[in-house]
Amino acid sequence: MSTPEKCACGNDDEDGLIERLEEIISSYKETPGALIPVLQATQSLFGYIPQKAILKISEILNEPLSSIFGVITFYSFFSLKPRGKYLIRVCMGTACYVQGANEVLTALQQQLEIKVGETTPDKLFTLDIGRCFGACGLAPIIMVNDDVHQFVKSSAVAKIIKNYRLHEPKTVEVQS
């Protein structure tokens, strides 16, 4: 998933984004099977799928609200709740799992004091699990937005979080 263009934690002007969304939806009007690409664009625009976006999609694509809601809840990449600035995804693919991804996840939950799927009160971090990012040679890995952290040990988790929290850098070196 790409990094949200706008993060949902601040006071972004969602009404302005709705206008942009309208243009996007209209450009898909003639595309067969447009609903999913439109929802992907919405997710990327807002960082989640707000109710007013669903209403707009329903109106322009002439799709019943119920079927849009059905599609959103089916796919794990669509979120009805705003997410934190940093989406931390712990790979729980087989290679990562047998190399200790579970311990990394436990450490993250303790560090952030949230469970999987939740967002920290400061709206900085959302914790989620991923199903294999296809970088199994580097297991275990976690992804923070689009940054890959490889060979992560549970003892290194605190440092990774701290780096994002304090400096919010683009990449953090992780010792292998």
């Binding site: 447009a34 999913i36 796919y75 990449f77």
Partner: peptide, 26 residues
């Protein structure tokens, strides 16, 4: 190109087709 949205079952051929059609990938 059509991008998936995070549903493993869409690797199954008929589910994949339904997903391209813009529906729940069942």
């Amino acid at each position: 190109i059509r991008k998936g949205s995070g549903a493993f079952v869409c690797g199954e051929e008929t589910a994949l087709m339904v997903s391209i059609e813009g529906k729940r990938g069942e």
